[in-house]
Write a protein that binds this DNA or RNA. Structure first.
Lengths: 223, 223
DNA sequence: TCAAGCGGATTGTCTGACATTCTTGCAATC
DNA sequence: GATTGCAAGAATGTCAGACAATCCGCTTGA
């Protein structure tokens, strides 16, 4: 038996369930940035007790998905463009590296998975479902990150993407953004499929820069 | 008045105090890797209630400083060399970038601070106090990260360094490691002082590779 | 020797409580 | 009219205690 095959199943505790639910709620923009979360309200809405909720909130705080100010309670942080830029810059570092590594080490099966997710995004891009677009695009990148050979890279990246997920939907719904995004992603896929590390890095960088520009446009138009 | 000057003072709550105390305890190696933490014991030791402790534990779990398996409770994760390698690789990405940016944008006052921290490390390197060595070296790098112009880079880096702080002390106490580390750090400082971005990146990369090799040696000799 | 079963220990979760702090609206003052 | 001060209500920080579910180690029996 492989020594490190972790067969332990994780029972779903109330705490974890709550974290997942709240995280999803934040992703989907259910809470407005800057708005405060009232513990008692969340408790009744989620049907859990206050200690369980507070544990979940501490987890989300550490993920930087919410802020907790002593004696004021939890709230959704409002993302400034300054912070968003910083996140995009670090994402660039990580994604470019991941795409490069992925190109030289992805397995054939995983490559097929990558192609599938690209097709899924293509389908979503033709529709007007911006949530589906964001989800499938996230799938595409998570496959790349999962095959870069560095779990930490993947983990850190996931944490960063989570924090800007809120307005990825916004930028994706810009006119034509989904289509150009598709073209960029296709280029990334082709490079990886060809095993061309350098091209993969370049394509990945290009994609991120465009995404960042689109995000800036959508943010400017929002204010 | 500057719009984003955050004047709000943060009262020290039991939760935060507990997180800090436990984090420090983990850094200093008070808990053995793999050992389990018993809630009731910690409560009496820290003089706090179980809900407060559990909130603190959730924070530390999200920082990956502890693991919490349902129905088994919290424990100190044992760092495999595989994970450590992955962390070093991502650290390299971040630190090299930070050093490069820092070289072209650090202010004169901060440069003096950097020099001071280098002197502090020099003093520590001559002693045999490996804890002081680790602390002063961490100061040196935190100044660089704080002046790279990207707060996210700094934040992510801090999270990663925290996870390997445990055996940075080990590798620093290797014969001659502190002295060669000093030489490498001096080179980084010189490059930054000269505003030479390229040299700063190179020196930073070199330092990290050496540190990684030293860490591997200490880890191999430990097992 | 090995398997089954039992009991103590530990965690997951809830209820309820209370002091402290914040917010908000209103009254009083300049 | 604007600002200050205050008081009531709401929300949070923290604790104590309780109980079921689960895990771990040990004994017992085959």
């Amino acid at each position: 038996m492989p020594p490190d095959l972790n067969l332990r199943i994780s029972p779903r505790t109330v705490q974890r369930e709550t974290v997942d639910k709240l995280r999803l709620a934040i992703f989907s923009g259910l809470f407005q940035p800057g708005s405060r979360l009232i513990e008692s309200q969340l408790c009744t809405q989620l049907g859990i007790s206050r200690p369980s909720l507070r544990e979940a909130l501490r987890s989300l705080e550490a993920e930087r998905l919410i802020e907790i100010v002593p004696n004021r309670g939890p709230s959704i942080p409002s993302l400034t463009w300054e912070v968003a830029t910083a996140i995009y810059e670090v994402r660039e570092l990580l994604e470019v590296e991941a795409a490069g590594r992925c190109a030289s080490r992805i397995s054939p099966e995983q490559l097929r998975e990558l192609e599938k997710s690209l097709s899924a995004f293509e389908a979503a891009a033709s529709s007007n479902d911006s949530l589906a677009q964001v989800m499938t695009a996230a799938d595409f990148y998570s496959i790349i990150l999962a095959n870069c050979g560095n779990p930490i890279l993947e983990e850190v990246h996931r944490g960063l993407v989570a924090r800007i997920s809120f307005f990825r939907g916004r930028s994706m719904s810009l006119d034509g953004r989904a289509q150009s995004s598709l073209a960029e992603m296709k280029e990334i896929y082709e490079s990886i499929a060809a095993g061309d590390e350098k091209a993969a890095r370049k394509a990945s960088k290009n994609h991120l820069l465009k995404a960042k520009a689109a995000a800036k446009m959508s943010m400017d138009s929002a204010t």
